[in-house]
Amino acid sequence: MKNKRIVIYVAFGVILLLSPSFLNAYWVDVLNNVGLYTILALSLNIILGHAGLFHMGHAAFYALGAYTTAIINTTYHIPILWLLPVSGLVAGLAALVVARPIIHLRGDYLLIVTIGLVEIIRIALVNNVFGITGGSNGIFGISRPVLLGWKINKPWEFFYLIWGFAAVTIFLFDRLEKSRFGRALNYLREDDVAAEGSGINTAHYKLIAFVIGAFWAGMVGNIFAAKMTIIAPESFNFWESVVLFMIVLLGGRGSIPGVILGSFLVLGLPEIFRQFATARMLIFGAFMVVMMIFRTEGILPPLPRKYPIAKVLGREGSV
């Protein structure tokens, strides 16, 4: 089972890597969007999938990152990629400040508070808060990123930037998932009283998960701003948060391959359904319902954690 999965992942990775050579600019750009949402959804997955916090306002941090990049880039002309960590930092700090008082809220109460956050941020952006966000016009004239002297401009160039970033994200988040920290998150997701009893400072861990997720979303905002060269508040509305939420749950909470597949489906299918014109979103909605009915835990739920007890006990017990 495990080997088969690995073969599929490798084959998938190779096809993806080569895809700009046989896809046209449009499909490459679809894949770019899928890539951006994959990274966003992976960052949400830390909060929603691993820590089990009902967070439906991830677009807020994504927006903060994008606007940080846009504002600093257009006023001080600092190269885009230098602003990558800055965007992450701003989003992460914001998460630290806002999450502290709300992190103890139970499930659905947290859900509405995070929805509130994304709406407050959007309204602030629309109303041109502090005179720096450009109101509903947004900010335009953001420069393109330059990587080692190469100006990134065309869809296929962005493809490698975005999926390169996605690969790094997948690697790091996979390590995180398998670390003590990741196990602690899963523990408090399943039973936070028991986790607290076992010496896990649950509020602290939840907060860290929140900040990591927000930090990463902020960095995606940076790339999004550079790719679009114009950003407007409408790109970060509540619906975007819902889309991310759906990706994580449709793919499989807490499963990296699941989340990747989820973003392919949630972003790719409406594009494929374009041939149905005005009915495309109708079909998409029905698809979501059907998918959840047949795969209630998501399409690719995480494999159960395995611990190599066999190694400890010698060869006798196979797991």
């Binding site: 009902f54 499930g107 819902v242 939420f245 759906m246 749950l249 449709l250 909470r253 005005t278 009915a279 979103m281 109708l282 998409f284 909605g285 029905a286 698809f287 979501m288 319902v289 998918m291 959840m292 009915i293 209630t296 835990e297 998501g298």
Partner: peptide
């Protein structure tokens, strides 16, 4: 979805919402 995780039903609800609206 009644016996599965609560959030699975939320996604189903969102799908139904998209469906009805369209």
């Amino acid at each position: 979805l009644r016996t599965s995780h609560r959030l699975s039903a939320v996604v189903s609800a969102l799908g139904a919402s998209i469906f009805f609206q369209n």
